[in-house]
């Protein structure tokens, strides 16, 4: 049977192209334009060249926010990934309790970011919140609005509560795809529990775990709503992560130029990390395919 060449279907993706142009490409171009100019409002712009980039590169505020951000992402990954795997390994494989666990695990994922923030904001309050009140009654000096360490613990525990189940669900999906034959072979060889995990379960989960790490890293690296609702970036600037600082600069102070330069550099970092993860993932697929 001869097939005629017909490329008209390409026109069907035109609406998507237009949507992406207006929601991503044009705003991004505008940000590039803003980053080399200064404005005093009224849509009047003055050329300043690379001044904002220079200023941002030497701005202690931006570097501090970047280190805080990397520290935050590092900590939550170090907690969520092992914890998620641990949870997935201990979830029932089939039956009523498997479905029950799945529903239970997906509940936090369904809650909107600002609601999660509000929940923890109230939960941690010393006067009315269960956590804050309870800790105070136990004699623990806990106050996330004044103590830097408490604020960090609150924000991290909140993220772990919200997102560990994503890692767990992905890891669980990876575990479910391992055929029983592998476990039977391991049993015949009298492999230890650790050997089963190390040589069967972990390699089989590697693909989905990479996706989980990528998703969690990107999400935490761009986190805004939850810490903003809970701590507002405080105490002081202790939990002011990159997005919070960026919004403060762009909307709070209306420094469009510096904020544009800042966001372009932020975007570059995100893009590079995405590329590394993407490359590693596609290479892993290829190696498995061989």
């Amino acid at each position: 049977m001869n097939k005629t060449v017909n490329q008209k279907a390409w026109f069907l993706i035109l609406p998507v192209l237009i949507l992406v142009a207006f929601s991503a490409v044009i705003p991004l171009m505008t940000v590039v334009n803003y980053s080399v100019q200064d404005t005093f409002g009224n849509n009047k712009f003055f050329w300043v060249g690379l001044e904002w980039f220079d200023e941002m590169l030497h701005s202690e505020r931006m570097w501090d926010a970047l280190w805080r951000q990397l520290l935050f992402s590092g900590i939550i990954l170090a907690i969520e990934v092992p914890l998620g795997i641990f949870v997935a390994l201990n979830m029932p494989k089939k039956g009523f309790w498997a479905s029950f666990c799945l529903v239970l695990m997906s509940l936090p994922l369904l809650i909107p970011w600002n609601v999660v923030g509000t929940i923890w904001q109230i939960f941690g309050r010393v006067d009315i919140g269960l956590l804050g009140y309870g800790l105070a009654k136990l004699g623990v000096d806990y106050n996330y609005t004044q103590n830097i360490f408490d604020a960090w613990v609150t924000v991290i525990v909140m993220d772990v509560w919200h997102w560990t189940s994503l890692v767990a669900l992905l890891a669980y999906a990876g575990l479910q795809s391992i055929p029983d034959a592998y476990y039977q072979a391991a049993k015949i060889d009298q492999a230890s529990r650790w050997a089963v995990f190390r040589y069967i379960e972990l390699p089989k989960m590697a693909g989905v775990l990479m996706i989980a790490i990528l998703l969690r890293f990107m999400d935490s690296f761009m986190i805004y709503t939850e810490p903003f609702v809970v701590t507002g970036g405080g105490p002081g600037n202790a939990t002011t992560f990159l997005s919070i600082d960026l919004v403060k600069m762009a909307i709070g102070q209306f420094d469009l130029g510096p904020a544009a330069a800042f966001s372009l550099m932020y975007n570059l970092v995100v893009l590079s990390i995405c590329w590394v993860f993407y490359t590693v993932m596609t290479q892993m697929d290829k190696r498995e395919g061989v």
Partner: peptide, 15 residues
């Protein structure tokens, strides 16, 4: 296009 605040150099960059 006024709101996009175009400049010569950025236009060249994108081209």
């Amino acid at each position: 296009m006024d709101w996009m605040a175009w400049t010569g150099p950025t236009a060249i960059f994108f081209v």
